[in-house]
């Protein structure tokens, strides 16, 4: 509601000349551009390139951060040994790593992925560690009492128990990865990617195209988030119902 109101005000301000449309295009113009972009082959190619980097960054993040989080959560000594390193690395803004990533990776796709993976790792890692710590000791003891070894306890109790927390971490990581992929594209440039498109539009003084492309990135983020929330609700019905006090 609030957002719609703001858009209406901007539109009116543009039409009445309160805002210079050369400076900020009309909302209706941007919406028209956005609709055109949706069927624009060139823009779609850029979009697909970004999505590809984003998708693989997320896959790599999960593949790295979940096992690492399990290890750190289950084996306390490993956690305390690596804590200084993690506390040093975590506050580094990933954007600051882009120049380094440019030097390290020739392939722009790999460069973007590496920055996104770096930023997206933290929410998954931290959530996995806390999820693992949160596992009911009795749930683990039950399996142990039946004679199962630590490996089985991790796979059959710790992992499923922590899964809702891990999923939340992945959802946060998905948003972070979108931001970082587009940022890396904008900062480092390249041949394809939504960030590259936005850059080109900017240097051509096409503010309407810039905003329209940016809006698509935002919409993509909202859609991904909504999709993951719905998936969590479905897959972790047991978790949500339990929290809701259904018994």
């Amino acid at each position: 509601m609030g957002a719609t109101g703001l858009l209406v005000i901007l539109e009116v301000a543009g039409r009445t000349g309160v805002i210079d449309t050369g400076f900020l295009p009309l909302v209706s113009t941007v919406l028209a551009r956005a609709a055109e972009l949706a069927v624009d082959g060139e823009f779609l190619t850029h979009g697909l390139a970004s999505m590809e980097a984003w998708f693989w960054a997320l896959v790599v993040t999960i593949a790295v951060a979940v096992p690492a989080g399990l290890l750190l959560g289950v084996v306390r000594p490993v956690e305390s040994a690596t804590r200084p390193l993690i506390e040093f690395l975590r506050p580094i803004p990933s954007v600051a790593l882009i120049p380094l990533a440019i030097l390290l990776f020739q392939n722009p796709m790999h460069m973007r992925m590496s920055v996104a993976v770096y930023a997206a790792t933290w929410p998954v890692l931290i959530n996995t560690i806390y999820g693992v710590r949160d596992v009911d000791p009795l749930a683990k003891e039950t399996l142990r009492s039946f004679g199962f070894g630590p490996g089985t306890v991790v796979m059959r109790v710790v992992l499923p128990s922590a899964a809702p927390f891990i999923a939340t971490g992945v959802r946060l990581a998905a948003s972070v990865a979108i931001i970082l992929v587009v940022t890396a594209e904008v900062v480092a440039g390249g041949i394809s990617g939504v960030g590259v498109f936005i850059n080109t539009a900017g240097s051509g003084n096409r503010v309407d195209l810039m905003i329209a492309a940016t809006a698509w990135v935002g919409l993509f983020g909202i859609a991904v988030n909504a999709l993951l929330v719905a998936a969590e609700k479905r897959v972790f019905r047991w978790h949500h119902n339990r929290l809701a006090g259904v018994s």
């Binding site: 039950t142 009492s145 199962f148």
Partner: peptide, 29 residues
Amino acid sequence: TPDNLAVVFQDYSRSLYPWLSALANVGLP
């Protein structure tokens, strides 16, 4: 833990796995 042991815990609800059906809970061991 000795082999061939089963325990029914006093806190039975915490010892069942909420992500598994009753059938899967019983079948797991």
